[in-house]
Nucleic acid binder design. Sequence first.
DNA 1: CTAATAGTGTCTATTAGACACTATCAC
DNA 2: GTGATAGTGTCTAATAGACACTATTAG
Lengths: 221, 221
Amino acid sequence: MTSPLDAAGRSLEDYPRPSVAVDTAVLTVEDGQLCVLLVRAADADDATAWRLPGTFLHPGEMLSDAVARSLRDKAGVTGLRPQQLRVFDDPQRDDRGWVLSVAHLDVVRADRIPTTARIRLAPAADVPELPFDHRDIIDVAVEALQKRYEASPDPFELMEPAEPDGSFTLRELRLTHESVAGRRLPPDTFRRSMRAELVETGRLSHGRRGKPAELYRRRTD
Amino acid sequence: MTSPLDAAGRSLEDYPRPSVAVDTAVLTVEDGQLCVLLVRAADADDATAWRLPGTFLHPGEMLSDAVARSLRDKAGVTGLRPQQLRVFDDPQRDDRGWVLSVAHLDVVRADRIPTTARIRLAPAADVPELPFDHRDIIDVAVEALQKRYEASPDPFELMEPAEPDGSFTLRELRLTHESVAGRRLPPDTFRRSMRAELVETGRLSHGRRGKPAELYRRRTD
DNA sequence: CTAATAGTGTCTATTAGACACTATCAC
DNA sequence: GTGATAGTGTCTAATAGACACTATTAG
C-alpha cells in the first residue's frame, strides 16, 4: 500500500488512529418475549462479564463481515444480515483506550442459537447491568427492529414455520409481531395491514382448535 | 493511559487500526433550491478537487466535534448541529489507505456560508462528479433532511426571518419546505399539518400584496 | 376596480381501531 | 351441542388532498 502525503506533508500513518469495534445486539424471540443475546467475556470480572458480542475490525474488513465473524466466533451463530445502527464515540466509553464502536442490529431465530455456558438470552425489556454503552445499543436496536416490523411481515424471518414449505397462518405471523412489539395487536387490523404483502397458498392449516386458517407466503417481488 | 491485555494477551496497540474520517453534507437553500456545500481540496487534481468537507478524527475527539472543526476550518461555518448518518466502510473507498468515513448531515442558512474561491454550492439534485462515495453521502443526507422537514416546521432554521423578532408567515415557512422537498406543497394542507407546532403572535405581516398573513413562532416546548 | 395572497369550509378517499357478526373446526 | 379460532362487514375518528369560497390587501 502506498502512503501518499497529504496537504500537511504527512501520510495517514503519521496520525493517531482509534481502534474500531463492532458491537451487535442480536435480538430473538423466545417464549413470546423479545430477547437479546449476551456472551460471557473471559477477560472480565463477574460484574461485567456479560456483554454484547463484539470484535475489533480487521484490516480490509467490512463492518458487516466483522459482525458476522464476531457472531460466529463468540456465539456460534451464522447466516445473518447485520444492519448498522450508529457509531458510539464517547472517548471515555472504553477504559482500555480510544475505541469507537459501530453498533449493529441482527436478528436470528432462537432455535439457531447454541446453548452453552458462555451464551445467554436476556429479555430486552429487562437487561442486566452491562459494561460500556451496551444498554444504549440494545435500546436503539429494539426501536429499529420494531420499526421494521411495523412496515412488513416478519422481515427477519423470526417466525418458526409450522408448515414444512414455509407457509404460515396470520395468527402465527401476528404472534411473532406481538412478541417484537411487546404488546397485543388487534387481529382484524393486523390482517388487513399485512395482507397486501402476502400471497395466499390456497391451502388451509388444520389440526388446531377452531376454524382452519388460510396459509400465506411472503410476496416474492 | 494504561494498555491492559486482552484475551489473546495483546493490548489494543498491537492491532492495526483504520483511519477514521468524518465527511459532512452541509445542505442549504439558495434561490429556492436545495444545495450542498463543496470545498476545493488543495492536494488533488482538478477532476476531483471539489468534495465534501471532511477531516480525520483527532484523539479524544467526538465525531460531532470533528465535524464542527472541519466545517470551521474548511468552510468558515460555525454553530451547527451535525447529525450522524452512517459509516461508509468499503476498504477500497480511499486509495490512500484504510479509511472509514462517518457521514454526517448538517444544515446552515446560505447567508452564513462565506463566499471564497475554495467554496461552492452545488444543487443537491445535480451534483458534479465527486471523489470517494461523496455522492452517496449526499443522497442519504437529502433523504434524512426531507424526512425531518415532513415532521416539523423548519427544524434546522433554514428560513431567513423577514421579521426582526424571528416570527414568520406560513407562506415563508412553506416556501422553505418546498425548497427542501423539491416540489410544491398544497398551502391548505401544509397549514393544517404545521399549525399544531406553531403559536400565533397575534401580529400580522404587512407591506406585501394580498391579505396580510398572521405571524407565527415555533412552539417552545 | 383587479390581481394576488391568506385563510376556512367541506367533500372525498384512505386508514386504524373497535366491535359485532358469521364460519368452521376440535372436543 | 360448546368453546375457540378465522375471517368479514361496518361504524367511527383522524387525516391528506382537492377544491371552492370568502377576506383583505396593493396598486
